[in-house]
Design a protein around this nucleic acid. Sequence first.
DNA 1: GAATAGATCCGC
DNA 2: CGGATCTATTCA
Length: 167
Amino acid sequence: MKKLSQSFYEQSTLEVAKNLIGKVLVFDNKKAVITETEAYFGDDPASHGANGMTARNYPMFGPAGNTYVYFIYGMYYCLNFTTEKVGFPAAVLIRGIKMIDTGEHFDGPGKLCRALNITKKQNNIQTFKSKELYIADEGIKLKCKKKTRIGITKNIHKKWRFVGIEC
DNA sequence: GAATAGATCCGC
DNA sequence: CGGATCTATTCA
């Protein structure tokens, strides 16, 4: 099992989002294949980073390969991985996973974090250094489809969602 | 300090 | 569609 190094996350956000499909998310001894991601970066009005840094979105401006966990609608956490350079706001939202052990499938960023028990404690972790939370390449190959993003009201026509299709 | 909108999910 | 009810922004 190959843990992804920081250089993987330093590519363009769209590349990272696409390449994360089929990778394995490891958290607290649980392993899950990433099946769906979305890209948020730069001055995209749908991105949290579009209007500058705040106490909540600062990990997006930090170095690539960190987690960015935010709390939304008073009930749900969402897990992201930061990409690109320091000072440039960019992250990939994890929207769907499949547990390797149980085969359970979780769709939706809120449900996924609830299932994995991810909270603010997991915010801004350096995944390429962490033993608790990181992404590995297990050589799984999935077909990848481009689609429009979900749950946003701005910039809705950009096909920045990536969905893995099992072969 | 109040009002509002948001990368969500669930139940009616 | 509305409720749950946190966070950041805007307005007064």
